[in-house]
Computed example of a mutant assay.
Amino acid sequence: MESNSNRDLTLRNFSPQDLKALLYIFRINVPEYFAADEETDFRNYLLHHADTYFTILSDGIIVGGAGYRIHEKKETGSITWIFLHPDHAGKGIGKYAAHSLLEILCGHKQVKYLRADTSQHGYQFFGSLGFTFVKKEKGYWGKGLDLYQMEMMNTLPKI
């Protein structure tokens, strides 16, 4: 997947060779966006769902990662583990990645609802994509990191 902006933005399928760079980016997002103990959860996610995870590149450089899951019994698709290097935040890269994932999810007929589980630091981003707030759970991700569950119908937002 590629973008037509000033930068060369690409989502490529996750490769084990990307793990070191993604873990570095993950760790510099601790503690603002992730709790340190979530690294184990992220690694486990990649062990079981690497086929739906992407490495985000800007001008050929790894700047983050993002994935999706389809929960067939719930007719729900989720954006998962989306994060960027802080130097690349606020430049439209996250929106590009999220929109690319939503395109994939919207292409699955069984998916009727889209979901994003985020924190107080990411809920406005998902709100800008059309997600609405469903519930909040204080300290869910770790100390000072609350769960903000966001949902929307399976419709591709305009960016």
Rank of each mutant, 00 (worst) to 15 (best):
E72N: 09
K109F: 12
L102W: 05
K91D: 05
I104M: 10
K91N: 04
A97E: 00
L84H: 00
S78Q: 09
G77E: 04
I70A: 08
Q110T: 13
T80D: 15
H88D: 10
Q120N: 15
H99G: 15
G77C: 07
A97Q: 01
K109P: 11
H85K: 06
A97T: 02
K73C: 08
R69G: 11
A116Y: 04
S78H: 07
E72R: 10
I93V: 08
K95D: 09
L84I: 04
R115C: 05
K109R: 11
H108M: 09
H85A: 06
E75L: 14
A89C: 14
L105C: 05
Q120P: 13
L101M: 07
G77H: 03
Y68S: 10
D87Q: 15
T76V: 14
L105H: 03
E75M: 14
G94C: 00
D117S: 08
A116H: 06
I82D: 06
K74W: 10
K74I: 14
R115L: 08
E72S: 15
E72W: 12
S119Q: 09
L105T: 03
Q120K: 09
Y68G: 08
Q120H: 11
I82H: 07
V111W: 01
I79K: 01
A89P: 13
S78D: 11
C106K: 07
R69L: 10
D117H: 08
E75C: 09
V111K: 04
K74H: 11
R115W: 04
S119E: 09
D87T: 10
A89M: 14
W81H: 05
T118R: 00
G92S: 02
E103K: 13
C106G: 06
E75V: 10
R115E: 06
L84A: 01
K73Y: 13
A98Q: 01
Q110I: 13
L102D: 02
G90N: 06
Y96K: 04
V111L: 06
Q110D: 14
I79D: 02
I82M: 12
A98Y: 00
L105V: 03
I82L: 09
Q120C: 15
K91A: 08
K95C: 07
I104F: 05
G94K: 02
K95I: 14
K112P: 05
A98T: 05
K91M: 09
L84N: 01
L101N: 04
Q120D: 11
P86A: 08
A116D: 08
I79M: 00
A89D: 14
T76C: 08
E103D: 14
S119G: 09
W81V: 00
K109D: 15
R115I: 05
A97C: 06
I93F: 04
A97I: 02
K91P: 03
W81Y: 06
H71N: 11
G107K: 07
G94Y: 00
I79V: 04
K109V: 12
A98R: 01
A98N: 05
C106M: 10
T118H: 00
K109I: 11
T118M: 03
L101D: 03
E75N: 14
D87G: 11
F83Y: 05
E75Y: 12
D117G: 08
H85S: 03
L102C: 06
A116Q: 05
L84Y: 01
G94Q: 02
H88W: 10
Y113Q: 13
P86Y: 05
T118W: 01
S78W: 07
